[in-house]
Nucleic acid binder design. Structure first.
Lengths: 347, 347
DNA sequence: GTCGCGTTTGACAACGTTGTCCAGAGGTTA
DNA sequence: TAACCTCTGGACAACGTTGTCAAACGCGAC
């Protein structure tokens, strides 16, 4: 078994080139190129000789050289916040699926919510000459992308808008979703509702807060600022904030959690308490229906976000011009029980 | 004015090169290269002129050309089964983290459990001349990789072993984990235990089945073949199989689910039944502790799998030779309740 | 003034591929 | 037999970068 592998005694790390194949097959360089790329104008006999040489040498075309020559890389970059966040899994997958349909590879990386790291990653991708970029931004100033975009790197922002530049964008309807969620709680009798959100500099967090306030205002309900807490989604912070709202001087009877990570912590906090507290979470998650009470959520369609963004990107790459477009993906309230709990009697 | 205009009005899609920068700065090509790469031997004055030209033109080094010239791409490929599967999120993240520490980019894609697609993807990555590959195999024959490995592409297999070639491998202890899980159920009084697994051609599924049989045998318990069902993890199939075991002539009193997707479906099936059935799942998942009863699981450390594999890969890239290594990552049984249910009285 | 030495700089080839263009073989027609 | 076409195959330049090597320069010492 191993001796066959050793049979080809090439120098470790250096691979045969078309030139080697041509020499071995006794044909010209361009003929090999033609065979490799399935171009016409090669007799079956010549083609067979070349194919034999290719397998014998273990030749594989060097795409770096090809890219250099052709100018297009057939790859796109995806920069997201955290590869491990389950919310981005389907999005990632959807983008890859569309890329694959267009014969492109996907290069990706996480920014870890760090603007500097986002920029570093994006520019590294640009240096690789990706044809396009799908970005879930962590930064709030994307002017550093201007030269790249001017040079023809198609760019689409997803989930959050670009900062200080005009660009194609695909967003969930965070405002509307949050308003629906809070209206749902109000419809079930709640008056004192807490909002647990992500850091305020994140666009979606701000939008969801805006939706919360809008729903409260539409119902004529005052908002005690002690009911609003934005910040890191670290469990400790969320736990602390939730507890403060629930045990404060004007305790809330319901919570609206601004994203999946916050919801998970909120569920844990509420599970430890004797009396049930209503909860609606932004983002759906697996098994939300099996917890008791089942968790009512505002679901985003992450796969559709990704698919839409990638499709938009390839449309640009296909040469569709025009001003930056912004597409909004609707959210969907899924009542499951936790949002339908009435406030405790006498509150 | 004219040269400014010429500078800004580049043809859309074509970027300035070092040659353009050199012309504008009034220096030689190599001097620009030196500045871009921070090489010594450039006077501060010259360097400033070059830097100015770079920003004015929006120059960014073309890494395709650089790669072609240097031979190393500073990128590694990760091929996994499904980017959207939450189990692979932390693994993906861990690999990226290690890659980043080594200054490498991560290119990835999903095989969708399709051997042909895996091969296509892997070879595309080889054509890009990735320095190394981390593969979660879908195929069971990897001889197609022999020329690539011989040519110096470092390769590490994770989660499942390579087929028909020798290669570095990092695995979870599926056998031991499954045996622990089933032994746990037996210790709580169960005698008739069902196994719901993934397709038998998948190594981990086979190993877990082996663990199941080992635990049963060690306890001197016979296995009714109606208690064993391997196949697709599609919810319909799992539901059907589980129902058959629970309602069959010799009904099981406990289930062991072979992976996270199966566990989720099993939880749903059991939730619909009047009397509780014990369950242990392979793979931990979020909120497993909040379902009632909380789900007992055998947890794999996906992040550690990824970290170990990537570290092994870069060690090879750093020139460490030697025979293929196989590393095994232990699993951990997390008792939460669902595995501690006793069998119904009189069974 | 010239020599030697170290530093800064640039000309040029090479990396492996593809596009352009031309040469020669073979066949058809006048 | 010459003129003309078609079809296959190959020579060569170019893509944008980096490594090699040598030229040009400044400067102190003889």
């Amino acid at each position: 078994m191993t001796d066959t592998a050793r049979g080809t005694s090439r120098r470790y790390g250096s691979r045969p080139t078309m030139k080697d194949v041509a020499a071995r097959a006794g044909v010209g360089l361009k003929t090999v190129s033609r065979v490799v790329n399935g171009e016409p104008g090669v007799t079956p006999d010549t083609e067979r000789r070349v194919q034999d040489a290719i397998t014998a040498l273990g030749f594989r075309r060097n795409d770096s050289a090809r890219i250099l020559r052709k100018g297009r890389t057939a790859s796109i970059g995806l920069v997201l916040e955290d590869l491990a966040d389950p919310f981005y899994g389907p999005l990632n997958r959807a983008v890859e699926e569309v890329a694959r349909d267009h014969g492109a590879l996907l290069i990706n990386g996480s920014s870890a919510e760090d603007p500097a790291r986002e920029q570093e990653l994006v520019l590294a991708l640009c240096a690789r000459r990706v044809d396009g970029l799908v970005i879930i931004p962590a930064a709030d100033d994307h002017r550093y992308l201007e030269p790249e975009i001017a040079a023809g790197v198609a760019t689409v922002f997803v989930d959050r808008p670009a900062g200080r530049i005009e660009a194609d964008t695909v967003l969930s309807d965070s405002f509307g979703g949050a308003r629906d969620a809070v209206a749902h709680l109000i419809a079930h009798g709640h008056r004192r509702i807490g909002f647990l959100g992500d850091q305020p500099r994140i666009h979606t967090a701000a939008e969801r807060l805006r939706g919360y306030r809008a729903a409260m205002a539409e119902a004529g309900l005052p908002v005690d600022e002690a009911w609003v807490s934005l910040g890191s989604t670290a469990p400790d912070r969320v736990r602390f904030a939730a507890t403060a709202m629930l045990d404060g001087p004007r305790p809330v009877t319901a919570l609206f959690a601004g994203n999946n990570r916050v919801t998970v912590t909120a569920v844990r906090v509420l599970a430890e308490r004797p009396r049930p507290v209503a909860l609606v979470g932004f983002d759906d998650f697996e098994l939300a229906d099996l917890i008791s009470p089942a968790i009512t959520v505002v679901a985003q369609d992450a796969a559709r976000l990704g698919r839409t963004a990638a499709t938009m990107l390839f449309r640009r790459l296909d040469g569709v011009d025009g001003p930056p477009r912004r597409e909004e993906i609707p959210t969907r309230l899924i009542p499951r029980g936790s949002g339908e709990l009435p406030p405790p009697a006498g509150s």
